[in-house]
Nucleic acid binder design. Sequence first.
DNA 1: GAATGTACTACGACAGCCGAAGTATGTCAA
DNA 2: TTGACATACTTCGGCTGTCGTAGTACATTC
Lengths: 111, 111
Amino acid sequence: MGISSDVIRGCNDTIILCLLLDGPSYGYEISRRIRLMTEDAYIIKETTLYSAFTRLEKAGCIESFPGFAENGKRRTYYRITESGRRYYREKCEEWGLTKTVVERFIREENP
Amino acid sequence: MGISSDVIRGCNDTIILCLLLDGPSYGYEISRRIRLMTEDAYIIKETTLYSAFTRLEKAGCIESFPGFAENGKRRTYYRITESGRRYYREKCEEWGLTKTVVERFIREENP
DNA sequence: GAATGTACTACGACAGCCGAAGTATGTCAA
DNA sequence: TTGACATACTTCGGCTGTCGTAGTACATTC
C-alpha cells in the first residue's frame, strides 16, 4: 500500500513549487528528487508532473526557459515566480488547516 | 481561504467511515457532524456526500437500511461493515504516510 | 403563507491523474 | 554492434471524484 493519488492530488503543486524554491530545475530532476526525498514512498507519474508544469506556468507560478545538459542535450527548465512563492505559502497554510481537520477523523486506537 | 477539494478528496471516505464507527447515521446528520467537528472549516457538499455513500456501499464498506425520524419521516441510514472498518484502518495508515511525505515539502520559515 | 430546515435525488460539467504509446538522444556492457 | 537502460520529454484519451444547478417533498417556525 502506497499513497493514493486522491490524497496527494492537492499537494503536487506544493511539492513542485517547494523544489523550485532551491533554484531552477527540470522535469526529470524534480521527479528524481521527489523519489529521493520520500525514499520511494512517492513516485510522481511523468504525465502528472508535466501536466502540472503546464498548469503552473499558465497560472503564472512558474516560468520555463531552455537550457542544456552537460552533453549538450536540450532541456526545459522552470523557475518559480514571485506569484508562485505566494501561492506556495498559501498552500502551506492550507495544508496546516487540512491536517488539523483530517486528524479529527483519524483514530489510531482500536477503531 | 478554506480547504481545497483536491486536498480533501482522498479523505472524504475516511471522514464518513470514521463517523459511522460511532453507530449508524444518515446523510444530513453526517454533514452536520462534519461541520461541527471542524468548526465550519470543512463543509462537505451534499452531492459529494451522497455520491460517497453510493460508492462506499457498492464497495461493501457500508450498508444502507431504511429508518424513520421522530416525526415519522423516512430516512436512509448507513452502517459500517467489517470490510469498511478494515478499509478505514488502511486509510488511517495511508494518512500517516502521506503526512510524512507531504511535510518534507512544507517550509514554514521564509520560503 | 413564506421562509427556513430537513432529507434527499438526478444530471452534467470539469479538473487532475494516469496508462499507453511514441520520440529522440546518450551511455555502457556483452 | 547491438541491445538494454537512462534521460527528457509529448500526445491522447479514459477515469474518478467533486460540485453547480435544479428539483422534490415534508415539517417547523415566524
